[in-house]
Design a protein around this nucleic acid. Structure first.
Lengths: 157, 157
DNA sequence: ACCCCATAGCTAACGGCGTTAGCCGCGTTG
DNA sequence: CAACGCGGCTAACGCCGTTAGCTATGGGGT
C-alpha cells in the first residue's frame, strides 16, 4: 500500500480515502486483469483463420500471462472478487474458449486448467531449465483438439 | 515464524538457532511435501489394476492436494528448493506418471500442468459453485489417454 | 574433578507491513 | 459568507521476520 501510494504521489493512509482496504485495491486490479484477458482472447479469436483454434487461444493466453505476470497472479490465483467485477465480464473473457470447444463445458474447464497450470508452473519456475515448453503446449492443444473431434462425432459432421 | 515457534513450545527467535531463516523452514516443508507426494503417487500406481492409469493417478493427485492444501501450496507454488531436497526425490515423485505416459515427456508435462491447474483452481475457489469437477477430471484424463494411444500407434502394439 | 565452551533457550528491539485516529486546508454549496 | 465534506497529512498501533545480546545447562578435555 505504501508503494502504491508513492507511485501516485501520496502517503499510504490517504489511499484509504479512496479504497476501504487492500482487498478492494486488489479487486480493482483483478477487474483490470479480467478486462485485459477478455480483450486479448477476443483479439486472438479474431486471428484464428485456418490455424488450430485451441493453439491460437493458448498462445495468446500464455503471452497474456507472461506479459504481466504480477497482474496475472493477482487476477487468477485467489478467489475472484465477482462483486467488484463489471457485469458479464467473466463470461465475456470465457466466450472465445467456449466457442472454440463448441460449447463443451467439461473440455472448456479442462483446457482452462491445462493453460492455467502451464502458465503457473512457468511463472513459478517449476519446469527444468531446458524444458521445451512450446512442445508441451502443442501436445496439450492437440490432445484437446482430438478430444473435441471425438466428442462431436455424433453431434455434427 | 512466531506461530510455528509456539507450536513447538518455544519463542520465535529461538527458531533461528535451528534454521537460518523462514525460507529454510519452507524448504524443509517442501521436502516433506515432495516425500508425501512420491508416496501417494507410488501407492496409487500400485492400485491401478485394470482401471485407466491416468485417472487413478489423477484422483490420487487431487486427493493428495485437497488433503493438505497449505502444504501443497507451499510445495508447488514457488520455486522448488532443490538444494534442500533429498537426492533423487523429485524424479521419484515423477516416475509413476512417467511410466503411465510410456515415457513421453511432453505428455507427462502437459498432464502434470493439467492436474496442477485443476487443483489450484479448485483450491483458489475459482470454479463456479455447481461445477462438476469429477466430470472435468474424467474428460481431461480421457483426452490424454487418447493422445497416448495415438502417439504410440507407430511405436508399440 | 573441574573448567570451558558450544548449544539452545530467552528478552528487547528494529524496520516494514496494513490500518486507524485525528488534524487541517481548500473548494463547493446553500 | 458560513458550513461542510473531501482529500491530503502525521502519529501510532499491532502484526511480521529478523538480529543483538544475555544466560543457563550440559558434555568433553586436561
Amino acid at each position: 500500500m505504501r508503494r502504491i501510494a508513492e507511485r501516485v504521489g501520496i502517503r499510504a493512509p490517504s489511499l484509504y480515502k479512496h479504497f476501504p482496504d487492500k482487498a478492494a485495491v486488489e479487486a480493482g486490479l483483478q477487474a483490470q486483469g479480467m478486462v485485459r484477458l477478455a480483450q486479448d482472447m477476443e483479439a486472438a479469436e479474431a486471428e484464428i483463420g485456418d490455424d488450430p483454434p485451441l493453439l491460437v487461444l493458448a498462445s495468446a493466453y500464455r503471452q497474456h500471462a507472461l506479459a504481466s505476470p504480477h497482474l496475472y497472479r493477482l487476477t487468477h490465483t485467489r478467489p475472484l472478487a465477482r462483486a467488484a467485477l463489471p457485469e458479464g465480464l467473466e463470461d465475456r473473457a470465457a466466450m472465445p474458449l467456449a466457442r472454440a470447444v463448441h460449447g463443451d463445458i467439461d473440455i472448456a474447464r479442462t483446457f482452462w486448467a491445462f493453460a492455467h497450470g502451464m502458465v503457473m508452473l512457468e511463472l513459478d519456475g517449476r519446469f527444468p531449465p531446458g524444458a521445451d515448453l512450446d512442445a508441451a503446449w502443442r501436445t496439450g492443444c492437440e490432445a484437446f483438439a482430438q478430444a473435441i473431434r471425438i466428442k462431436s462425432r455424433g453431434g455434427s459432421a
